[in-house]
């Protein structure tokens, strides 16, 4: 296992482009900022420091104040932390459910596969935002509800990817060779199938993580996601929107935070997937 990871990392490092390096760096920095938010933020999250809203940057207020006179810079750390934690939980949950069911469906096949695949088909025929809005109507917007709902929606997409990968791998002769040896389900899954699906799954994880960030931010922006006084990046944009009218850039900082994470992850995934991109014939260019 360790050997494998080291090997694929060494391989990947060889083709690392400057853009990809930069993206990797940004992602690490953001994760670090999210983890260490309470230590890095100069002020407490809800602390009102001044009576002036949308003040320009100055003494102790690195990015100025927000609409209530709180330190925007500190709030960004906490907002980032909430966004990252919530989105990561969503992506992990979606992967746990989607991958297990997807691989199970691929390996078991038959009725189990039919049943789950049809169910997922029906769920995918359902625009994700609709499902989210319906559940929020019924249960109200709370973080656990949002996490479970979005993870559920996402898991259908993960299921499809995992199942497709699994179906491809299951028909490979090396899996058949293990089957005919008499290997049980557990070995097939852990030793034959999963190691070969790891790389595309990692790319898919990046995509699902950014999707979760965008989705939760959009809901918060609409006022249907995280509810104040808690604030993720979407809430920070929503509550400071008026700043635009006063000519400040206050809502743009959290927006840029979101863009920095999602663009970095997407560029990295894109770089990774394109390493094996086919070239098209010269005579068509």
């Amino acid at each position: 296992m360790v050997e494998r990871v080291v090997m694929s990392l060494r391989e990947a490092r060889r083709d690392l482009t400057p853009t990809a390096t930069l993206c990797l760096l940004i992602i690490c920095l953001i994760l670090l900022a999210a983890i260490l938010a309470p230590f890095l933020a100069p002020h407490r999250e809800g602390e009102i420091l001044t009576t002036g809203s949308f003040m320009s940057p100055g003494e102790g207020l690195f990015l100025g104040s927000d609409y209530l006179g709180r330190d925007l810079f500190s709030r960004l750390f906490y907002g980032l932390r909430l966004t990252v934690v919530v989105s990561l939980t969503i992506a992990l949950l979606a992967f746990l459910v989607g991958c297990s069911l997807g691989f199970l469906a691929a390996v078991l096949g038959g009725r189990f596969d039919m049943l789950i695949s049809r169910l997922v088909d029906a769920l995918i025929a359902f625009p994700a935002i609709m499902l989210a809005l319906i559940v929020i109507t019924a249960l109200g917007p709370s973080i656990p509800v949002l996490v479970v709902t979005i993870a559920f929606i996402d898991s259908t997409r993960v299921f499809r990817v995992a199942r497709a990968l699994g179906v491809d791998i299951v028909v490979q002769d090396y899996v058949e060779a293990a089957t005919v040896r008499g290997e049980r389900f557990g070995w097939l899954m852990w030793h034959e199938i999963l190691p070969n699906a790891l790389v595309p799954l990692a790319a898919e994880f990046g995509i699902r993580f950014t999707y979760a960030i965008l989705f939760i931010s959009a809901l918060s922006f609409l006022g249907l996601g995280v509810q104040p006084p808690q604030a993720d990046l979407g809430v920070l944009i929503r509550e400071n929107m008026q700043g635009l009218l006063y000519g400040t850039f206050t809502p743009l900082y959290p927006a840029l935070c979101i863009a920095a994470i999602t663009i970095s992850i997407n560029l990295l995934v894109d770089w990774y997937l394109r390493r094996n991109d086919a070239a098209s014939p010269e005579d068509l260019q």
Binding site: R4, D173, Y174, A178, R181, G182, H191
Partner: peptide
């Protein structure tokens, strides 16, 4: 089939490329 029965009859596949797990 018992493990011994499985052991006594082995099969070798056509495409060596795909018969060996690339991650092992």
């Amino acid at each position: 089939r018992t493990r011994d029965e499985l052991r006594e009859v082995q099969i070798v596949f056509q495409m060596a490329d795909v018969a060996l797990n690339p991650r092992h």
